[in-house]
């Protein structure tokens, strides 16, 4: 059964709208896609030939500052992390996969889907289904610690 007490409908919608506003500012003011995997890779110098690294650094640092502000103001940001081996395997796959696939949940999922970008209309269902199957398989063999 779905535990209705545990679903954060209002928080989810408010957070989602803030994310949408952020992506809209990136698009309409800076003319760019708010794709976090690409901006982060650019900010740490992993995008060869980049001419806008400062821009990417500003975005990435502000991303952390925004989350810090939200935590200070609400004192209600929950984080429940898995064990370290799980984090290492997940991190390697997410880093490699998002670069190979040119985007993640923000670039393909939020910005690309809303643009009806053909590549994002393929990428988003693929990574969603891939993640759903992965979770189902992990749970079937005993779950994450």
């Amino acid at each position: 059964m779905i535990d209705l007490q545990d679903i954060m409908i209002t928080e989810g919608l408010v957070g989602g709208i803030l994310i949408g506003v952020a992506a809209a500012i990136m698009l309409l003011a800076a003319g760019r896609i708010a794709g976090i995997s690409g901006l982060f890779a650019n900010s740490i110098g992993l995008v060869p030939g980049s001419t806008n690294r400062n821009f990417a650094v500003m975005f990435t640092v502000s991303l952390l500052a925004g989350a810090w502000l939200a935590e200070v103001l609400t004192n209600d940001v929950v984080t429940r992390y898995p064990d370290n081996i799980t984090l290492i395997i997940g991190g390697l796959l997410v880093g490699f996969g998002t670069r190979l696939g040119s985007g993640c949940t923000s670039g393909h999922g939020v910005c690309g889907l809303s643009r009806l970008s053909k590549r994002s209309l393929y990428a988003t269902p693929i990574f969603m289904i891939s993640a759903i199957i992965t979770v189902a398989v992990i749970n079937a063999v005993g779950g994450v610690q």
Partner: peptide, 30 residues
């Protein structure tokens, strides 16, 4: 690359429950 990258990203996302944005803000949360 688009398809393989998305499959690989999805596996990592499912394994850890983290995609790039949430993991980066985690640096100030945990």
């Amino acid at each position: 690359p688009l398809i393989m990258g998305s499959v690989i990203f999805g596996i990592g996302w499912g394994v850890a429950g983290l995609c790039p944005g949430p993991s980066l803000i985690g640096l100030v949360l945990e």
